[in-house]
Design a protein around this nucleic acid. Structure first.
Lengths: 333, 333
DNA sequence: CTGAAAGCGCTTACAG
DNA sequence: CTGAAAGCGCTTACAG
C-alpha cells in the first residue's frame, strides 16, 4: 500500500560498520558483551542513517512485545482518561508501551479487545471488566496472558486486582448526607453486576439502616441519557427526594444538569454526591462532593502487580484495596 | 518472561486439516482462491483449537500493520477524548486499529510518539501537532509515513489537513459578545504558534476592530493552573473585564471556576464563551457558550483523507475546513 | 568479545 | 485450487 522509502535496518548498520547484525543487535541493546568502542560505533552509525528499531520483528522473535493493553469502558469518561494517563506514565517508566482498548461496557467488544491484545502479543493486560460475563477472563486464562483487574472484581473468583474501598466509599457518602439531615435519599446506582456498584450499595445501605432510614435505589443505564430517564421516572412517581448519591461523578454531573434544568436548587433542594473525584484533575465550575482515592498510587500498584505476575506466573493471587475519603464541595454543603 | 502456553498457530491448523499453512493463510483471509469447502474446514479447525491471528508476524511479512497512530496532546482533554472515540470508530469500520499516543503538547514527546509509531510500522498517522517545531513532521516525511494533520496546520508548509474554520469561530464568538453589549472583552488565548489560536484571534480581532473596540489578549499556559495564573495577573492589574472568550472549553471551565470563586457572577458580571463544544458529548451543570463543528464529519473526513493518501502517496495535497457555529448557553445570555 | 545459523509465524511470489 | 520455498527484520542459542 505504502511506498517503502527503504527504511534503514540493522543490515545497513552492519554493512556500514563492517560488523554482523548479531553484534549490531547486541550493541543497540547495550549488551555488556560488546566492547564499549564497538557499541559507540554502532550507535553512531544508527544515528547517522536514522535507524528506528522495528518493534514488530523484535517482538516476533523474542516473544515479548513490551506492550500492555489497557481495556476499559470508555476513555471519554474522565475517570478512565485520568487512569489511562497515570497508567501510561507508569508503564513508560518501566519501558512498556500502553495499548488502549475501549469496551463501551459491552461484553462482545470486551472479548474483541482481549482478542486484539492477544493478536498483538501483549505481555499483559489491565482490565476494567464490564462484568456482563466471564468470557473475556476465560480468554485471558486460556492464552496464559498475565492480567490485573482494575476497579472491579469477581467476588466468587479471586484474581489479581486493584480496587477502591467501595464499601467504605458508600458508607462515607451516606453518613455525610445523613449528617446534613437528609431524610429522602436515593442512590442513583449502576447495574449491580458491577462489583463496585454492589459494594457501594452495601456500605450505603449499612449507614442508612443504622440510621433507621429505608434504602432507595434507582438504577440508571450507562449510556448517555440514562440518568435523565432514571430521574424522570423517579420524579414522575411523585417521590420526595432531598439527596442523591450517584454511582460516579459523570452520572452526578448529569443528575445536576437535570435537577437544575428542572428548577431545583443544589444543595438547598437536593444535596448531591458522586464518586471518583474527577475534579482532582479537571477544573469545573460546579463543586461536586465526591469519594476519592489516590490515583497515582492506584496506577503504581496496578503496574507493579502486573509486572510481578509477568515475572512470576504462579505467584499467589494479590489484591490491593485503596483507601478512600470524602471530598466535600458545594453540592452537598 | 511469560510461560508460553503453546499458543495455536497456522501450523497447527494445517496439521489438523492436512493442508499447508499457505492454504490455511489464504482461507483465513477469505481468499477467492481457496475452495469454499476448504475454507469452511479451515475456519472450523481454527475455531476448534482457539486460533488467534498473530498480528505481529502478519504485519512483518506483509509490511502493513493495519494500524494508524493518533498523536494528540492529551486524551484527558474531553475534546481529544471525543475525537479519539470518533476516529477509532471510523478506523475500525475500515478495518484499521488505532494506536493512541499523548504528546502533552511537548515537542520531544511528540517526536518520541512518531518514532514509536514508526517502530510499530503504522500505516498512517493522524497528528494534532504541538507546533513548537517541525521535527516530528520531518520524521514522518523521512520515513514516508502517510499522515494527516488534525485541528492545526503549518501556514507556510501545506500538508493534508482537516481543520475547523477557526477564523469564523473567533468572529462568531466576538460578534456574539458584542451583541450582548460587552465593552471590556478579553481573549484568553493559547500560544500563537498554534495555528488555531492565531486564526481564532484573527477572526476575533476583525470583529472587535469593526466595532471600534481594542483587542486585548491574555495568553495562558496549557498546563493545569495556567488559566488561574493568567487571570490572577489580569485582574491584579485592575483591568475591567465584562467578557472572556477562552481558547477552548477546558480553559473556559477553568476560568468559570476562578471567576465564581472570586465572587463574580456569570453572565451578569462576566460573560463567557469557549471553543470545542465539549458539552455535546458530556453533560455538565454549567451551560458554557461555545463554538462547535460536526465531530463525526471531522473523523470521517480525516480517515478518508488518510486512506486516500495511503493509497495514492503522490495525490495532490488536500485540505478540509469544517464549518462552525455558535452554541449559545447560560454563560453568555 | 564477535560471527554464522536458525527461527519467530506469518504472507508472498512462483509452480503445478 | 493447493503446495513448496523464500523472506519480513529482528533475537537467540551456539561457536570460537
Amino acid at each position: 500500500m505504502r511506498k517503502e522509502s527503504q527504511r534503514p535496518t540493522m543490515k545497513h548498520i552492519a554493512q556500514k560498520t563492517g560488523l554482523t547484525v548479531n553484534t549490531v543487535s547486541l550493541a543497540l541493546r547495550n549488551s555488556p558483551l560488546v566492547a564499549p568502542a564497538t557499541r559507540e560505533r554502532v550507535r553512531k552509525a544508527a544515528r547517522d542513517i536514522g535507524y528506528v528499531h522495528d518493534a514488530l520483528a523484535g517482538s516476533l522473535r523474542s516473544g515479548s512485545s513490551h506492550t500492555v493493553a489497557i481495556v476499559l469502558g470508555d476513555v471519554a469518561n474522565p475517570l478512565f482518561a485520568e487512569r489511562f494517563k497515570y497508567l501510561e506514565r507508569e508503564l513508560r517508566e518501566h519501558n512498556f508501551r500502553a495499548l488502549i482498548l475501549n469496551t463501551d461496557e459491552d461484553l462482545r467488544l470486551e472479548c474483541e479487545a482481549i482478542r486484539t491484545a492477544i493478536s498483538h502479543r501483549v505481555d499483559g493486560v489491565i482490565l476494567c471488566p464490564c462484568q456482563k460475563g466471564r468470557e473475556s477472563i476465560a480468554l485471558l486464562r486460556k492464552f496464559g496472558v498475565p492480567f490485573v483487574l482494575l476497579g472491579r472484581e469477581f467476588e466468587d473468583d479471586p484474581m489479581d486486582a486493584v480496587v477502591w474501598d467501595d464499601e467504605k466509599g458508600g458508607l462515607l457518602a451516606a453518613q455525610h448526607l445523613l449528617q446534613k439531615n437528609c431524610v429522602h435519599m436515593v442512590f442513583l446506582n449502576a447495574a449491580l453486576e458491577t462489583s463496585s456498584a454492589a459494594r457501594r450499595l452495601k456500605g450505603y445501605a449499612q449507614a442508612l439502616t443504622a440510621a433507621g432510614q429505608s434504602v432507595r435505589v434507582c438504577e440508571a443505564q450507562p449510556m448517555a441519557g440514562g440518568v435523565r430517564d432514571a430521574l424522570e421516572a423517579l420524579f414522575a412517581s411523585g417521590a420526595s427526594v432531598d439527596a442523591l448519591f450517584a454511582f460516579n461523578d459523570l452520572m452526578g454531573f448529569e443528575a445536576a444538569s437535570w435537577l437544575l434544568a428542572r428548577g431545583l436548587a443544589i444543595p438547598q433542594d437536593v444535596r448531591l454526591a458522586g464518586f471518583d473525584n474527577v475534579l482532582s484533575s479537571i477544573s469545573l465550575p460546579f463543586g461536586l462532593t465526591s469519594i476519592s482515592a489516590d490515583k497515582g498510587e492506584e496506577a503504581r500498584r496496578t503496574v507493579e502487580m502486573l509486572l510481578r505476575r509477568m515475572e512470576t506466573p504462579d505467584a499467589p493471587i494479590a489484591r490491593a484495596v485503596l483507601d478512600v475519603r470524602l471530598v466535600e464541595r458545594e453540592s452537598s454543603r
